[in-house]
Amino acid sequence: MPDFAAPSIEGSSNRRARIRDRMLARLHSRQETMAKCRKLIGYGYLCCLLAFIYVPILIMIAMGFNESSDYELPFRFSLIWYQQLAGNEVLWRAGRNSVILAVASTIVATIVGTMAALAMSRYRVRGHAILQILLLPPMAVPWLILATSMLIFFYHSGIGRGLHAMLLAHVALSLPYVIVVVGARFQSFAADLEEASATLGANPWQTFVRVTLPMIAPGVAAAALFAFAISFDQFVTSYFLAPPGVTTLPVEIYASIRKGFTPEINAISTIIMVVSMLLLGFVSRFYRFGGSK
C-alpha cells in the first residue's frame, strides 16, 4: 500500500488544515442554526397542536362561568349556572348513577380481568386463544354495534335494560384494557419468585397474596383507574341500555344537547372533565404512556 499521508510542503499543508478547520467550523455552525431552526418550528407546531386540542375545551369551561344564557360575549363572570346545577335533581340523580356504575364496574372488571391475566400468563391452559379473540371485539368493533346487539339480546333474553345491563356492558368494555395492562405487568417479571414460594410449601392462594399481588399491585391500580374512566365516560352503551327514567350523566348530557343548549351543561361538563383529568393524571403516576399500551 502506498503511503498517502506522505509529508508534502509544510506551509501548504498547514494552510490546507486551516482552511479545512474554518470550513468545518462554518459547516458546524450552519448545522447548529439549522437544528435550532428545526427545534423552533417543531415546538411551534406542537404549541399549535395543543391549542387546537385545548382551546375548545377551555372555551367550553369559560362559557360555564358566563352570565349570558346564549353564550354571548362580552364575558361577564357569574356562578349562576353552577347554582342552577346544584338545584337540578335530574342531573344529580344521573350523576349518582354514573358514580355507582363506575365504582361497581371498576371492582368487577379489575377482579375478573386480573384473574384472567394471571391465568393467561402463569397457567398454560388451552382456550387462551379463544379468550384472546373474544377480547378483541370490545376494542375493535364500533361500540354502536356492540351496544345495539346487547340491546337486542338483553331485551329478548329477559335481562332487560337498566343499571345492571349497563354494568354488564361497562365491564365487558373495560375487561380487555384491564387484561392488557395487568398482563403487561406480569410479563415484566419472571415467575421465579412464585415458583420459589410454591417450592417452599405455600399453597397457590398464599403465593398469590404474599408474592404475586404485591408485585402486580401498580399494574392493578392503573388498570382499575382505566376501568373507572371507561365506565364513567361511557356514553354509547349506556345510551342504548338506559330505560326511560334511568340515566347516567353522559346520556343526560346528550339529551340536553339535542334539546337545546344551556350553560348548565357547560357547568356539569366542566366538573366531569376536571374529575376525568385528575384521574388520568393520577394514572400517569403508575403507568408510563411512552412505553407499551
Binding site: I53, A229, D233, F235, S269, I272, M273, M277, L280
Partner: peptide
C-alpha cells in the same frame, strides 16, 4: 389527557 375524558363533552 383530554382523550381519556368524555368524548361527548
Amino acid at each position: 389527557l383530554p382523550f381519556w375524558s368524555n368524548a361527548l363533552i
